[in-house]
Write a protein that binds this DNA or RNA. Structure first.
Ligand SMILES: [Zn+2]
Ligand SMILES: [Zn+2]
Ligand SMILES: [Zn+2]
Ligand SMILES: [Zn+2]
Lengths: 125, 125
DNA sequence: AACCGTTTTGACAATCATTTTCATTTTCTG
DNA sequence: CAGAAAATGAAAATGATTGTCAAAACGGTT
């Protein structure tokens, strides 16, 4: 696994937004690549397994991926208009999640936190 | 829209966990109902539109629904083992989300926050 | 360079959740 | 009760994702 995986990874590196498999496929084909959609799905899976890309689900259940700058735990602020994404962290949220879990006798706490909004550029029109 | 929608709503009321359409379908059929899967999807959609049920996506993209006690904004603490769900709120998280959005020039901020863990019962085995 | 076992790739079929379609049934209104 | 409008269910259509499998690309070895 390498040729294609690197190509997919590179596409993600050059995008500030979360991208779907179809999305990436369309772009790569437009750029002249002969890559197959199946290969893209496999590359995204591998990259995610290796912790090199983050994944989240859109409201309609589609998986979208992003190559974040850090591999450390963090969250995202995503523009609903253009998809522009900023990596953010929230120490308070981490603490809160642990505490609320513990308060109810839950262990092995994890959490998902995503913030959405309209970025300044999209707000202008 | 009424007969079936109420039946589906009732199933959800009696469950502490988030349930999928298939899930509900299987239970209702087992109980002798002649309801169709399509009708369940439509009922869940309608209930969600009316703000009577919450929806979230499992890791594999399946939509699951829950009739929460409150219709006010809140979040969930979900057991990965049995699905037991507790409604929680986090004023700090609300503030944090707004602030992090504003700091980056984003407007119309919304957010998704879910906490997962293993409940006390499931932890025992 | 030719050889050979391993990995990767891509076209295509298969799955699975969800949505559409459409004819039938139920509900509502007068 | 008649007729219109809303709801229902079976089956087909969609769309994303995964599985299959034979062909192509790799890597190391003579
Ligand atoms: Zn934007
Ligand atoms: Zn976190
Ligand atoms: Zn549990
Ligand atoms: Zn909140």
């Amino acid at each position: 696994m390498s040729r294609s995986r690197d190509a997919v990874h590179e596409i993600l590196r050059q995008s500030a937004a979360f991208r779907s498999a179809q999305d990436i496929f369309t772009e790569m084909r437009a750029d002249g690549s002969k890559i197959g959609l199946t290969t893209i799905y496999r590359a995204l899976q591998a990259l995610n397994d290796d912790g090199r890309v983050d994944v989240l689900r859109t409201d309609d259940g589609e998986a979208v991926y992003r190559a974040c700058a850090t591999s450390a735990h963090h969250h995202h602020l995503v523009c609903r208009g253009c998809g522009l994404t900023v990596e953010v962290d929230g120490p308070d949220v981490e603490v809160w999640a642990e505490r609320v879990g513990a308060e109810h006798g839950f262990t092995a706490i994890t959490h998902t936190v995503e913030v959405f909004g309209t970025c300044a550029a999209c707000a202008k029109g």
